[in-house]
Design a protein around this nucleic acid. Structure first.
Lengths: 243, 243
DNA sequence: GAGTGGTCTAGACCACGCT
DNA sequence: GCGTGGTCTAGACCACTCT
């Protein structure tokens, strides 16, 4: 494979994989879009189809690309299914799983805290947008969510009159700001409900809550969102599969 | 590929994969053991090396096999590394990760509860072995663990004088009982510490604890252990990576 | 029928571990 | 030097989608 810039060592298929990743990361191929066929890519990059195939295989395994036999290969997109199965791990104790309805409580701009600056790699003094919302499961307020994103990437987020945000924010990030969340890290703790938690979730102050702190990252590893969810786990739990 | 028993449809490599899985599951190839080379398997099964390779690729991805260039392919085994990186998700808030020391509190035989019977697919009235232990992180009691396994599979477990069990039980299951834990499901909740939790973990009664209920399964999907861990998450958290 | 990904094969050469 | 897995290639045929 010949490229203008010297691409470091490693196997050919890894170089092809990184090249494809770069094009997607740069927005050359948008989410949902059809990428060139394996044959075309092989010709363009002067490698065999099998090498392109191996590169694509790995990107499919990493949820970056999606194959559809007979149609082609597409850049993965954020839909309700992905939100539910890859980025929402709260399940009813009866096994039911559904995306909770959301109600925005507040939406404001403020300085980032030191925790937010370190988690999102922000310069001191950077301003962020804070969205607070309550999410309902079985018609009961179950999750109190505080979401912080830097103003730089999401300039006009929540500036419309009534903070009318969709339930699945990652679809909004993708369609409106061209930012695709690729993976996330979550840190879970048990905490005691404070007065505000108690009021919003209609529980006793001091009751145990599951706190999930999530950092969401783009394909190139940039952290773009810090989200803290406090969940009433009396009828629900967080599900994790270990391999 | 010709086999005595008719193996259902599907691609050749999937049939090879299931055949290899079956041999491992049946104990024909033990954990840590070298399996035949790709060439030998290809000859034996009358398929190409590439087909065997694809089957093995998938089993490596599923942590069933491990390749070592120049040496061969081995059945995956439970060592300290796997315990720490695949089956232990509690991390210090400072980023430190270490297996906690364990102290067995009690070890007894009793009837399984209905919860245990459903989680482990046991017949009513089945007896189980219950191990209770405290695990220490930074020299402080941090996790209270209750482990239940059926007596059928682990006949003499904990019958030695002083319940002297190793820190990583899955290594014991593998070496002593020929049972390999392949994957696990965890359900997390926040709960309030009861009197016993408070005493053993040296915290206030009612303090929030992270409860992790784990079902551990073998390669063929049989559940063999139910483990409930109650964790003091004031200085630690449960880490989860989403893709 | 043309184009796509999915499977299967065969062969070449490389990198590594052992003896 | 030999056997192992790791990479790369080339070509055949199948299954699916769309026109």
């Amino acid at each position: 494979m010949i490229t203008t810039t010297v691409r470091g060592a490693g196997p050919l298929y890894a170089q092809v994989r990184e090249l494809l990743t770069g094009r997607i990361s740069a927005g050359e191929w948008q989410p949902g879009q059809l990428i060139p066929s394996e044959m075309r890519l092989a010709q363009e990059l002067q490698v065999s189809q099998g090498t392109v195939r191996k590169a694509i295989d790995e990107l499919v395994a990493a949820n970056v690309l999606v194959r559809q036999q007979g149609k082609g290969t597409f850049v993965a997109t954020h839909d309700t299914h992905r939100a539910l199965f890859h980025f929402f791990h709260i399940v009813g104790d009866d096994g039911n799983k559904a995306l909770p309805a959301s109600h925005v409580v507040s939406c404001r701009r403020r300085r980032a805290t030191s925790r937010e600056m370190s988690a999102l790699a922000l310069a001191p003094g950077t301003r962020g947008i804070e969205i607070e919302r309550i999410r309902y499961l079985n018609d009961r307020p179950t999750i109190r969510e505080t979401i912080v994103v830097p103003t730089g990437l999401f300039a006009d987020l929540g500036k419309s009159r009534r903070c009318d945000l969709p339930n699945t924010l990652y679809e909004l990030y993708e369609h409106r700001y061209g930012i695709t969340i690729h993976r996330a890290e979550e840190r879970l703790r048990a905490v005691a409900a404070n007065a505000k938690d108690a009021e919003l979730l209609e529980i006793a102050s001091g009751a145990p809550l599951l706190e999930v702190e999530r950092t969401a990252l783009t394909l190139d590893g940039t952290p773009v969102e810090l989200r803290v969810s406090r969940c009433d786990t009396r009828d629900h739990h967080y599900y994790s599969h270990l391999t």
